[in-house]
């Protein structure tokens, strides 16, 4: 009886691992690996223009003919994902690959970031034959604020200008009325 309980638990665990699709997929994608090799992190202002290099490895025993590699961007502060074409002219391009068993390929994605914020860039590899994907470790891109809006100056101008314009308008209308 004492042996039966751990055996049962082990069975349940094994059943769960192999029947839940997420675990199943996770297990299978180990056949494919993608890793951003450079840069390791970005912290810049006001603009970062460079290449993101990723290595894609086929760990499976068969050839993977229809792999596609592309960039994704996540804005941590704003909780948004973006169209990557805003992050460089060629950032939106997907790179097709074909890898023999054990082969590794390097993909270079040129990017240009001129937004301020805390981003995570990832490279995804999609295998169209098996309809499975693999995502790289996130690359931290921290774009710093070059300078900040001076709230005091902005508020003063925002308050004074309409008053000035309104006064000038009233004076001009009054002047015209007196003239005629």
């Amino acid at each position: 009886m004492k042996k039966k309980i751990p055996t049962l638990l082990l069975l349940i665990l094994l059943l769960t691992v192999f029947t839940v699709p997420a675990f199943a997929a996770s297990n299978d994608t180990q056949a494919l690996d993608v890793r951003i090799t450079s840069p390791t992190a970005v912290e810049m202002k006001p603009i970062y223009a460079g290449d993101i290099t990723a290595e894609v490895t086929n760990n499976s025993s068969g050839t993977l003919n229809h792999l596609n590699c592309f960039l994704s961007v996540f804005d941590v502060d704003r909780g948004l994902s973006y169209n990557v074409d805003e992050f460089g002219e060629k950032a939106y391009v997907a790179y097709p690959l074909s890898l023999a068993p054990g082969e590794t390929a390097t993909v270079t994605i040129p990017v240009k970031v001129n937004y301020v914020g805390n981003f995570r860039f990832t490279v995804t590899v999609l295998d169209l034959d098996s309809e499975r994907s693999c995502i790289s470790q996130p690359l931290t891109v921290h774009m710093l604020t070059a300078s900040e809006l001076n709230k005091t100056v902005a508020t003063i101008v925002a308050v004074i200008m309409p008053i000035l314009c309104l006064s000038a308008t009233l004076v001009l209308f009054r002047k015209r009325k007196i003239k005629s």
């Binding site: 502060d77 300078s147 809006l149 902005a154 508020t155 925002a158």
Partner: peptide
């Protein structure tokens, strides 16, 4: 200008 200078989302934007 007042909105941009005072709301949280505005503050997240770069000056440029």
């Amino acid at each position: 200008l007042i909105v941009v200078a005072n709301i949280k989302e505005g503050a997240a934007m770069a000056q440029s």
